[in-house]
Design a binder for these strands. Sequence first.
DNA 1: AAACGTCTCAACCGCCCCGAA
DNA 2: GTTCGGGGCGGTTGAGACGTT
Length: 254
Amino acid sequence: MGRSPCCEKAHTNKGAWTKEEDDRLIAYIRAHGEGCWRSLPKAAGLLRCGKSCRLRWINYLRPDLKRGNFTEEEDELIIKLHSLLGNKWSLIAGRLPGRTDNEIKNYWNTHIRRKLLSRGIDPATHRPINEAAAQNQEANTISFASSATSAAVAACKQEDSKANMFLQIKERCPDLNLELTISPPHQNQPDRTLKSGGRSLCFACCLGLQNSKDCSCGIGNINGTTGGSRSSTTGYDFLGMKSGVLDYRSLEMK
DNA sequence: AAACGTCTCAACCGCCCCGAA
DNA sequence: GTTCGGGGCGGTTGAGACGTT
């Protein structure tokens, strides 16, 4: 049983990428675009798994990546977004231009967790450690991170609950700007954070979950999500911040 | 200077989702 | 409606860097 491997593992390199492999991958993608990752290694002359190529490109070779230390503002934004979304690193990364999910995940585990613990905050629940410990005594404790996310999705199934959901998140993070109108205007698109072609977006779409089964407005299926590519390739419209965030495919590659 | 412990982060693994057939 | 395959995601690993004794 089980799925067939994504590639022939017997003849693929593993481990750290060499400069030559990087150059080959960059050159191929510049010439042909990202296309099919499964067939890319062979076409590019790389003895690598397609997934490995994708990861290398997404996380380290993309031209729009911002390397270097996280700023204090980025730290705080990650903490707030994590309190809302939990370990949805790709969604969080969608709000941090030039940062990748892998980078944020590593940064969270190595720096921010410790930072929160030193503040006496449980990084899993974003509550004071004493309070979190007390809650864990209860049988069915669910962290806010996960409950808020699912609550958000559930709420969007009930139109009347939207306002309550916003208020709930706002209450948890009073200084986190969740106003949907603050996003930088997308140059080629009308503001569709709240409406799209005169239609209201469901809350899942507002959270960047256009492709989610929980989307109740159907907008997500309209806005160019063809080809099965998900948000990391087209850029999230998470809370209306899509523009210029991860839309690296639009970059000139000459 | 060497040995050991700890930390960091690039890379891999396995599962899930979704579109196409 | 079902199956299959590709892409994407989150969790985990392990090699190298760094710090301490």
